[in-house]
Every structure is written in structure tokens, then in C-alpha cells.
Design a protein around this nucleic acid. Structure first.
Lengths: 339, 339
DNA sequence: AAAAGTTGTGCAAACGTTTGCACATTGCGG
DNA sequence: CCGCAATGTGCAAACGTTTGCACAACTTTT
């Protein structure tokens, strides 16, 4: 048996027509119990696996969900993937995963490719494409779910973390703990999440009657390295007006900051308080454990699949916005009220 | 344009036959320059994207590599993925990724499914299936590369870390640093890597004239939690003969051990020395930075793709074994030689 | 005992490509 | 002016499924 067995081979062995085999395997009610079982048994014996390509061709859709992510190395993405993974598995869908390396052009190319696979639908994580999606999305015959970006279109839906709220939450927490000089370590410039978290940071400050100072928005890209550099930025600030706290775009850079602080002899949280974002697994075991904003990444993934499935069933779908909670740990110090 | 345009639509618009369109798009030399360009232009205009399902059906293979991994949440797997990702992208292959949640039965099911997609080949990471692959592999019409497990078959090849050597390396390092009471925190029981690392651990001990004591192989599964529990195991050992060092199956559990030690007031490395395995990014920023064995995960991924491509081109392929190096950091203390 | 329904099966078309082969047109040498 | 190669294009089969329709063999109703 050098070639994979096809439905015809089974038909020959069972002495029936290919259509009967197809129906027997698909549990059609028009097939007698006896035939069904005989065919099933033979299929089992020869190790039959249906050609999904052929099936996709005739039915016009295959049971795969196309997933595009900017990177697979990011633990936050990994968590979303887990949610996607679990939820899609439960519904018998597989995933075709492509990563765009954070490059908008690549992202568009990946989407084109996945479309060519007759994917049932697309899930796009943290898109780096801002404009320029619309013409492409219109050509796509399948529904598209964006996770943590915001796009509009005919069969386009969104599932997101309320990043503005998250940024506000983190900053408010620092304010409540008595901090007034709070910096923000930013994320990837083109990402929407970064802009929203920054906006929440700004709103919290202004609500507290504090001025927003663009000089205290530290450029970064969400990497460990960016966190290390942020610590040096901090060290270079003139002492009296130095920030007492930094809210970081994500946990990864917060962790980098923590590590560098340890090496440079800066005590966290005594000299400097830190808040992260995402609540990745590592934050629970960092030293000190990191105060952060839960982002419910796994839930994000599950909701994305749920929305896609609903769209496929042409049920009504609405955009979903998830609010995380603050996870207070040990990287923030309560400051005395000075008077 | 509600439906995706097909080759026939283009043919009609260009006033030629579908076959001519196919050839023009495939750069066949039998098509005149003029026709080729006209067809190209039209295809561009209508936003034509070929149906990969149809192509797969007739050519019998599609440009996707099936990848099976036990989990996507593991940073070591993430690194291998990055290598796979980059290398396959470079050669125009896409990846269909499925995760088996560490369950052998699921793993087999995933392989079946990927076969149904006419994948060009399969790459299987850290397989949890020991026997029982052979009948399936024989039916598969495509080459299969196993990463960090060991299977044999007609078009089956292996790319692995020399885990036995790695285990030996880690243990030898501890011995060289003066430790004689060394425990091993194990990994997933069914995984081959665990067995090999344990074997290396044992060999190093025996070469040094020390007895291997099965009671000092702490059961674990490579999770952060397993590391935490290992610390409590250590605390429960009677003091005079307590191990002075633990070699951990992977960095993740070593990191968990570190965190728990910090919480319980156990000083690393003063009270206890730790060596991990994998050299995941986090080890560089843990406190203290973790001594570990580099596993060259990204290289593993690249080599896997390279082997697969070679097998597809029916070039000779040999199994590849990668040796990592010890990455000495600060989690191991040098013990005085007691004369 | 004929008509009508029920049950199980097969035929053939369709999905969008690729590709071996045949055909038509052109230009060339003899 | 005929034959022949070279060049460009089309026809039709094939890939492995699914599915609407037709049909045969029974079973039930009248």
C-alpha cells in the first residue's frame, strides 16, 4: 500500500459505490446499519484518512482557522494561542499559524496565503497594519476576527482587552499608593495596544490633577532589552524630580527592568515601583513578584474562536471587550502622604 | 465580486483557455511574452489567489509543513518554533501547527489529520509516543522529522539535542565545583529527553566514583510548579546528607525552584546550587541568573526544516545530533574541597 | 392486485487546478 | 511550392470528495 487509500479503494473492497462509502462515513441516515458498519470497519483496517484538500474543494471550505500573529516567542501570544488551541480543538477546527515578524507587509501576505487555503475564517492577533486592510478584507470570502486591534468591515469582528482601562487601572493603582511622579515605558509604536495603554495612563494622571509629560513616556518595544534600557533612562534622570514609579507596556519589559535594577543595585520597590501588563506566568515567580494587570489572554483566544464560529453560523456577532483586573504583588511600594 | 475569482474567470476576461492562464501564471516557457503579461495584469486586477486545495489535489502535495508539539506555552518549544518558522518561511513553506497537550493518543490523531491535508512533510517535536508509531508512519506518504525523540522508518529522520551529554555536562560541572551530593529533578515520564538527561546524570556520577541513588531522582514534569515542589522535597531531606545541588530537567522548573527558595528563605547558591537546561531567555534575568545547558532550540528548528527539505528533494539525509554548551551563571557555588 | 410509499444504493456532475497530448499557425530551408 | 520544425494555444483527463437525482427492491396501504 504505497499510496494513501482513497474512498474508491474502500468502495472496491466493500463492493459498493464511492458515494455509498462517502455517505456511510458521513453518517448519512440513508445508509443501512449493516453497510455502514462494514464500510467503517474496512476504512479502519486500511487506515483511511480523508483528503481534506478534495473535501475543501467541493464544499468550498476546510476545517482550518487561519491564525496570524506577530511573533510566537512572546509569552502573551503563547497564552492567547493556548486559548485558541483549546477552543478550536473542541469544535473540530485546526489552525494554520503564520507569523509576520511584526512586519505589516508580511502580515498582509500571510492573510492572502491563508485565504488561498480555503480557511473557514481568520484570526489576526495584534495586527500591525493600520490602514490598507479594507480592500483586502472585502475580497475575502471568510469572516475575520481581530484580537487586540480594531478594524471594521462586512464580516469583520473584534475581540480585545480594554487597554485604555488597563492603563488607567495600573496608573490609578500607583496614584492610590501615593505616587505622583509616574513614567510610562511604551510598547511597539505601530500597535494599537500601546496607544490605548498610554491614553489610559494619561487619563488617570489628568483625573488626579497631574500634568501629562511626554518626556516621561519612555520609548520601548515590549522586549526584555527595552526594560533594561528603561532602567538606565531612569538612572539618568536628575534625582529630585526622578519618577518614583514606572508603568510598563508589558510584563516582559517590566521583568527586564527588574533584572537590570537588581544588577545596578536599585531596590525594587524601595527605590522604584513597577507595574507591568499581561500577567504572564513568569510574573508570579519574579523577584519581587510583579504587580501587573491581568489581560486574560487565554480568554481572548477562546472568545476569538467563539466569535468566529458564530460568524460562520451567521449568528449575530458583536465586538467583545474584556476588562482585566489589577494583580497586586510586591513591586509597588506605598508612599507616605507628605503632609 | 462575491465569490473568489478562479482561473476560469481570468481566462474569460483574457479571451484564452484556462490552461493558458495556468501556464502563464506558472511561468511556463511555452507562453508568449505578450499573453503572459496580459494575463498577469488581469489576475492582479481581479485579486486572484490560487486555490491551494485544488492545487494540492492535483499535484498531490501542498506547500505546508505539518508541525506537532506537545504544548505551545513552553518557552523552549517557542524557540524551536521560531527556528522552524524562519527556515520554512525562507523556502516558501507554511506551517500547520497542532498541539497534542502531551497526550500520546492526541498526538497520533494530529498526525493523521495533517496527513489528510496533503502536507509536504511532518515535523514532530518531543513526541510522547514511544511505540506504536511504526504502523502509522508506514502508511504516510510523506517524510517525517522527529525533533528530540528517536524513531526509525523509511522516510523518518531525527534531529536532536544530545541530552545524555547535556545531563552529563550539567552534572560534571557540579562535580567540578566540588559538589558530591547532587539530586536530579526529572521531567515528563514518557519523554525521551528526560530519560537521556537522567542517564547522563548517572554516568557523570559513576565516572566520579559516586553511587547513583534512585531516591535522589525527584519526580517532576518540567513545570514551574514541579520546581516549587522540588524545593519542599529538599527541605524535607534530613540535614546532614541533604543534597548540596540539584540538576533540573529544564529551566522552567529550575526557575520555579528558585522562586520558592526565595520565598522560603533558602539562599541560592549559598544553601543550594541549581543547574537548569534549555537556556530560555528568562534564565538570563532570573535572580540569581541561572547556570544552565544551552539547548540551541532555534537551531534545532532550522535543522529540522533543512532535513525535511532534503528528504523532499530525495537527497541523502542523516540524523543530526546537536551538542549544547554549559552556560555558567550565578546559581552554582564552588564548594571547598575538604582536603 | 395495483398504487403508493419507504429504504438503500448508484450515477454523474461539480469543485479549481495541472499537464500530456493534439492542433493550428507561422517561418524556414530545400 | 511542399514539407518540417518551432512556437503558441486549447482539449480533456485527472486528483478525491460530496450531493442532487434517479432507480430498484421491498413493504405497506387501498
Amino acid at each position: 500500500m504505497s499510496q494513501r487509500p482513497s474512498i474508491k479503494d474502500i468502495a472496491r473492497l466493500a463492493g459498493v459505490s464511492p458515494s455509498t462509502v462517502s455517505r456511510a462515513l458521513a453518517d448519512s441516515p440513508r445508509i443501512s446499519q449493516a453497510t455502514r458498519e462494514r464500510i467503517r470497519r474496512i476504512a479502519q483496517e486500511v487506515g483511511y484518512a480523508p483528503s481534506l484538500a478534495a473535501r475543501a474543494l467541493v464544499t468550498g471550505a476546510s476545517p482550518v482557522i487561519g491564525v496570524v500573529a506577530p511573533s510566537l516567542a512572546d509569552p502573551y501570544i503563547a497564552s492567547v494561542m493556548r486559548g485558541l488551541e483549546a477552543a478550536s480543538q473542541e469544535h473540530g477546527y485546526q489552525r494554520l499559524v503564520a507569523s509576520s515578524q511584526g512586519d505589516p507587509a508580511q502580515e498582509l501576505a500571510m492573510v492572502q496565503m491563508l485565504a488561498g487555503h480555503n480557511a473557514a475564517g481568520l484570526i489576526i492577533l495584534s495586527s500591525r497594519v493600520r490602514e490598507g486592510y479594507t480592500p483586502l478584507l472585502e475580497k475575502l470570502a471568510m469572516p475575520v476576527i481581530f484580537v487586540n486591534s480594531l478594524h471594521v468591515g462586512d464580516r469583520v469582528f473584534n475581540v480585545m482587552t480594554d487597554n485604555e482601562y488597563g492603563g488607567w487601572l495600573a496608573t490609578s493603582h500607583l496614584l492610590r499608593m501615593g505616587h505622583t511622579r509616574i513614567a510610562y515605558l511604551g510598547g511597539p509604536e505601530r500597535g494599537r495596544s500601546h496607544a490605548a495603554r498610554a491614553a489610559g495612563y494619561r487619563r488617570a494622571l489628568e483625573e488626579a490633577g497631574l500634568a501629562f509629560d511626554p518626556a516621561w513616556v519612555i520609548p520601548g518595544d515590549g522586549s526584555i532589552e527595552a526594560g533594561r534600557e528603561a532602567l538606565h533612562w531612569w538612572l539618568n534622570q536628575p534625582d529630585p524630580i526622578r519618577p518614583t514609579a514606572i508603568f510598563c507596556y508589558n510584563d516582559l519589559s517590566a521583568l527586564g527592568l527588574l533584572a537590570e535594577a537588581y544588577q545596578q543595585g536599585v531596590a525594587i520597590p524601595d527605590d522604584l515601583s513597577i507595574v507591568g501588563f499581561d500577567n504572564i506566568p513568569m510574573t508570579a515567580i519574579s523577584i519581587p513578584p510583579l504587580t501587573t494587570v491581568e489581560q486574560r489572554a487565554e480568554a481572548l483566544g477562546r472568545y476569538a474562536v467563539a466569535s468566529l464560529l458564530a460568524a460562520l453560523a451567521t449568528k449575530p456577532v458583536t465586538d467583545i471587550i474584556l476588562r482585566g483586573e489589577l494583580v497586586p504583588r510586591a513591586s509597588v511600594k506605598r508612599l507616605e502622604a507628605h503632609d
